[in-house]
């Protein structure tokens, strides 16, 4: 389990990194935290001609708030997010999700950009990005473009980013006070990727629900935004009956696959169970 030979570059700037990607014309791989890419290299499942390591570009790691958005440099470590007071205050759902990403020693190196660019459908960050309607900024030869979560994830481990583009920033709308949130996950062991996870955010407004946001991990080839389930809540409020109905609807909205850990039927069932639990907990959080 040793990687194939490759060229290695650790550019000091983004422009240099982009030039390198261009030079290798699709045969280079971007190396971020390496927590997903390195295992693939060690198994020789990934066999790039070159690695372009972003770890020496200091300007890619930051957490800032701008116009109601929390913005993350792509190379911001999951560990930094976990301990960030800004994230705890303004994006508590992301903080909760971070605790589910592997283990602390994994989060030491793993990055938010890598987690999203890797597009593992069982990963938590893509689910949060999808639930919150976040966006990413990609920089390529033609400059920068903003890609909405719904346009980003194509299928298993595949995004709409071009091979010569680098994801440089992740933007998530900050959570208003009064909102409730929860990430409910079922995994076989602590630190494993989700069998199914549901990211939920609700903004109650008296007996009504001003907004509900729901997205899945593990319930199909991409994270699924459960819009029709959200609509039930936005229409009927956050009553037990509406939550049950939303949970039932959620299960109809996903088309999971079977693998050795879980059958499609079981994943669909979990989607309903976890949606209900996530909504109930989010509601409790909202009511403090």
């Amino acid at each position: 389990m040793k990687p194939v030979k490759f060229d290695y570059h650790a550019p000091a700037s983004l422009d240099e990194a982009l030039a390198l990607l261009r030079r290798y014309g699709g045969d280079a791989k971007i190396l971020a935290g390496g927590q997903s890419l390195m295992p693939l290299l060690n198994f020789r499942l990934s066999r790039p001609a070159a690695l372009v390591d972003l770890n020496r570009i200091p300007s890619l790691a930051y957490i800032e708030e701008h116009d109601g958005q929390v913005r993350f440099g792509a190379m911001t470590r999951q560990r930094m997010i976990e301990f960030s007071p800004l994230v705890a205050r303004r994006l508590p759902l992301l903080r909760e999700a971070t605790k589910w990403v592997g283990h602390l020693p994994i989060r030491t190196r793993g990055t938010i950009g890598g987690s999203i660019a890797h597009a593992d459908p069982s990963a938590e960050y893509p689910a949060v990005l999808t639930a919150l309607d976040g966006e990413v900024v990609a920089r390529g030869p033609k400059g920068e473009r903003v890609v909405k979560a719904k346009d980003l994830f194509v299928t298993y481990l595949t995004t709409s980013l071009e091979p010569d583009e680098i994801l440089v920033e992740v933007r998530l709308p900050a959570t208003d006070a009064g909102a409730g949130f929860a990430l409910e996950e079922f995994a076989r062991r602590h630190g494993d990727f989700a069998i199914v996870a549901i990211a939920a955010l609700v903004v109650p407004d008296g007996a009504r629900c001003r907004a509900a946001r729901l997205a899945t991990a593990g319930a199909g080839p991409v994270p699924v935004r459960l819009r029709a389930a959200e609509q039930i809540l936005e229409r009927d409020g956050l009553t037990d009956a509406a939550i049950d109905a939303a949970a039932g609807r959620a299960a109809e909205l996903v088309s999971p696959d079977s693998d050795i850990h879980a059958s499609a039927d079981y994943r669909r069932h979990l989607t309903a169970v976890l949606t209900r639990r996530a909504l109930r907990r989010a509601l409790r959080v909202a009511h403090g």
Binding site: R188, R189, H190, G191, F193
Partner: peptide, 16 residues
């Protein structure tokens, strides 16, 4: 073999 890694062959951790 479908359980050819420790991602797929699940050894219990302290948390389980």
């Amino acid at each position: 073999l479908l359980t050819g890694s420790l991602m797929d062959y699940l050894v219990p951790t302290a948390a389980e």
